[in-house]
Write a protein that binds this DNA or RNA. Structure first.
Lengths: 212, 212
DNA sequence: ATTAGTAATCGAACAGTGTTCAATAATATT
DNA sequence: AATATTATTGAACACTGTTCGATTACTAAT
């Protein structure tokens, strides 16, 4: 079956070539400049051939984004073991997440905001079995539990984790939209935000009901 | 100059017709289904005529979105005067904002995430003179100051307001992406989030530095 | 009322998009 | 060498945004 193996390998290489070309276009020319014909031109093939390896453009897109997401989650735990306290660990995680996202906001937001089924499978972990399914939120979930302490239900913890995740997404969106912002100010906002995140995870204290 | 006035009026009516048709298409068929030819067909004109009234498609889009944004900010202060305490007021504002955004998430996010110059002018108020410029953030800014109390610099207040705004955006994004979520759960998340918002505005207490 | 000038409108075209399909070329199987 | 598979292509379809020259409608001036 060496022939068939080679065939499969070549087919895989072709898919790989298409995906890498697409990824390169997205990275250099931006997300919306990706087109089937442009990919075909780059690899010196007819546009039609691409449909022999992929169902349509969306499939290419979502596979590229899926890889981006994998690389992303991999870089989240940097320096996490060095952090001594739970709060410090959560801060580090939060900062890693934001900084990594801001390295390529277009890609990050494309992954987060796209609602095609394939992408959803990867990212929309928020409101069902969230705690068990996804590694990222699982990490967050455990940290929130560590900080909150005893006496909180799973649903309470999960709710807090969801709110933290949502807030973090919002901060990334806002920061990525604003181009004219210096590194100092950006750092300040991120710093302050990570502190807020720790507060969000500290469930028992500082719950000022409608006091006056 | 009655003739010229009538001319201007007719010109304005034509622009209005185009804008309303565009808005209708966006509302019924969704954001990305808007096309010049579709507008032209609906109003029984040639596609080319549209370029006699608007520079290009983006101009149409941004003007439609601008109106959406205006309607939006108008509905923010509903029931705000009934709220007794500053915390209750902030909660109400926060809830209004989220609920209004979720009524037409596509439109809301289009306004928030689009970075074309015209739209930016309307929405990107975050990181420069934020407190004075935009009515929405101004409202938020004042509420944060009310809750935080004395002894905080403008920059501190502004920072907190920015973080609240960003977090709220994130929650809306997350909630709008998840279609399969019942009203009960949604309410619970929003409720909890508005409490978190109040905590974010309460600057002096519950700041757990890397304790433990 | 006829002419000159301006504004509104259109048809056709250009260059681009995603996608499909029948025909061809290349390869593998018998 | 003939046959079946697979890879690849060119051409087409139905779209998209946009431009431009010609044509029509309307106003202003003679």
């Amino acid at each position: 079956m060496t022939i068939e193996e080679r065939r499969d390998r070549e087919k895989q290489q072709m898919k790989e070539l298409i995906l890498q070309t697409a990824a390169h276009i997205i990275l250099t020319e931006g997300f919306e400049k990706l087109s089937i014909r442009k990919i075909a031109n780059r690899i010196d093939y007819s546009p039609a051939i691409i449909y022999h390896y992929f169902r349509n453009k969306d499939e290419i897109l979502s596979q590229v984004l899926r890889r981006g997401h994998q690389d992303f989650t991999a870089s989240l735990s940097d320096g996490l073991s060095e952090a001594a306290t739970p709060a410090a660990r959560l801060k580090t995680l939060s900062r890693n997440y934001i900084r990594t996202a801001l390295k390529d906001p277009g890609q990050f937001l494309a992954v987060q905001l796209n609602d095609s089924p394939e992408v959803l499978e990867v990212t929309a972990y928020m409101f069902e079995n969230a705690a068990e399914k996804k590694p990222t939120l699982n990490l967050l979930y455990r940290m929130v539990r560590d900080i909150a302490g005893e006496g909180f239900s799973d649903r309470e913890i999960e709710l807090a984790a969801q709110i933290i995740a949502a807030s973090t997404l919002g901060l990334i969106v806002k920061l990525s939209l604003e181009k004219n912002i210096d590194e100092y100010q950006k750092n300040k906002i991120i710093d302050r935000f990570t502190e807020t995140v720790v507060r969000m995870a500290s469930l028992e204290q500082g719950k000022p009901e409608t006091r006056e």
